[in-house]
Amino acid sequence: MKPTGGSVAAFIADVTPAVRRRDAETLTTLLQEVSGREPELWGTIIGFGSCHYRYPTGNEGDMPVLAFAPRKSASTLYLDSTARHADALATLGPHTIGAGCLYIKDLEKVDLGVLRPILEDVLAWTESGGDDYAQITVTG
């Protein structure tokens, strides 16, 4: 995966429904504050910074350091692991999860005071180089 260019603002302006557009604006500001990096489009993902990952299997690639995608049914935030954040997620508010994805249908219904430290922890984990499961090198 690589940054694809394009205007983040124009992409967000086209996001529907309106609640997802509002949430995309808020998440862009939040992830920019947390990461200290500018938003970039990675296809339909809004990413902040870049890193290279490598798994013990030899699979490797590039991805944003922090990222989210404003999907039609929910905003998807990409985490290192939802299991590692289980205690915090239990107090977040309405959401669903996958192995490494956090899905939020309405950002106004969750506690941003809980979400921010989760994102800060994901950033710290990534910047520290990952773990035995994934070796990560921040490149931007």
Rank of each mutant, 00 (worst) to 15 (best):
K2G: 00
P3A: 01
G6P: 00
V8F: 12
I12D: 05
I12L: 10
A13I: 04
D14L: 05
V15A: 04
T16P: 01
T16E: 14
V19R: 11
V19P: 01
R21T: 03
R22N: 08
T26H: 10
L27G: 08
T28W: 09
T28C: 09
T29E: 14
T29C: 05
L31H: 13
L31D: 10
Q32W: 06
E33R: 15
E33L: 04
V34Q: 15
G36Y: 13
G36L: 11
R37W: 05
E38A: 15
P39C: 01
W42Q: 08
I46K: 13
G47R: 11
G47F: 10
C51E: 15
H52W: 12
Y53D: 08
Y55Q: 11
Y55L: 12
T57F: 14
G58D: 13
G58H: 12
D62F: 08
P64Y: 11
V65D: 09
L66K: 12
F68Q: 02
P70S: 10
S73C: 02
S75D: 14
L77P: 13
Y78T: 10
Y78M: 06
L79R: 04
L79E: 13
D80Q: 14
T82N: 07
A83H: 11
R84L: 05
D87W: 06
D87Y: 04
L89V: 06
L89E: 09
L89P: 01
A90D: 10
L92R: 02
G93N: 05
G93K: 00
P94K: 00
P94G: 00
H95L: 01
H95D: 03
I97F: 04
G98L: 04
A99Y: 09
A99L: 09
Y103R: 04
I104V: 15
K109P: 06
V110H: 00
V110M: 00
G113E: 12
P117H: 00
I118G: 06
L119E: 11
D121N: 14
D121R: 02
V122G: 06
V122Y: 04
A124R: 13
A124V: 03
G130A: 03
Y133K: 03
Q135F: 05
I136N: 01
I136H: 02
T137H: 08
T139Y: 02
T139P: 02
G140C: 03
